[in-house]
Amino acid sequence: MLRFLGHRLSSALLTLAIAAVAVFLVARMIPGDPVMIMLGEATGGDPAAVARMRNELGLDRSLFVQFSNWAMRLLQGDFGVSIRSGEPVLDDLLLRIPRSLELIAGGLLVAVLLGLPLGILSARNRGRLSGAISSIVSVIGFSAPVFVSGVILVVVFGVWLQVLPSSGYVPFADDPLLHLSCLVLPSLAIGLNFMGVVARVTRASLIDTMDNDYVALARAKGLSRGRAMIRHALPNAMVPVIAIIGIRAGNLLGGTVIVEALFDWPGLSSLLVSASFSRDYPVIQGSLIAIFAIFILISLLIDLAQSFFDPRVRATA
């Protein structure tokens, strides 16, 4: 188990390191000058002022020096200072990471709470109308883009029924109930798409495990088909379900880009979007690293959960 953990951890760190180099290079290779943008409105791009600021920000040094400085500081937990606000990037990240995690958690909750029963239903009632309907619902969920289901949710619950806020964010401390009600539609928008994935995999893997000997044995002992499925097949069928959550964690994270824009949610993705529009390199780099780190962490957790459910995974590592 320890060896397995070590192996996964080192490969995760390697991925993160490669991502960090890529992030740095991509941000620097792109045209557009943050200094001109900062001074642009006020000074009309006076060359002396531009040179001074470039020097202050260390942008006049060689790419390699800039990178090694950045990487060294990163290792010490220093993400640099935002060009726009002059505040440490880390502060912004710490503020926004919980908000994006909240969306992801909400989405996952929706996906599992709706996807599992849907998958079970369609596996159990295979060949019947209710089974076919559950399958169709899951394909629909899977095919509806996040922003399309998001817009439809806003139209139904925000515009017509007016029961939920159509967008916005309220800090938990200000008004907990409102905070949670603001969270409902974005979570649904992210979760419905993922629900389709979860339901499909649950169905396929349930059907697979139902053919196993031990399930047949349980049925021979007199358990009804449904009970045998829930009691014996389901726990084993969970392994691929957990695996798909890991494989598709990127989609979940990617969904926050659209959802944060659609619902005006001040999370990591919206920080990244606004920073890339103003060429705020430290913030772009910091938020990308944070996003990739979250992603890698989720994958790692999923790996561990999988090995917990299925010892064979450990053996193959």
Partner: peptide, 19 residues
């Protein structure tokens, strides 16, 4: 493997926002 594993939309977003 690294590139496939990273969420694509972030890469696309940065590229298009900047280009």
């Amino acid at each position: 493997d690294v590139f496939v594993s990273l969420p694509e939309i972030f890469v696309a977003l940065i590229a298009l926002a900047l280009l």
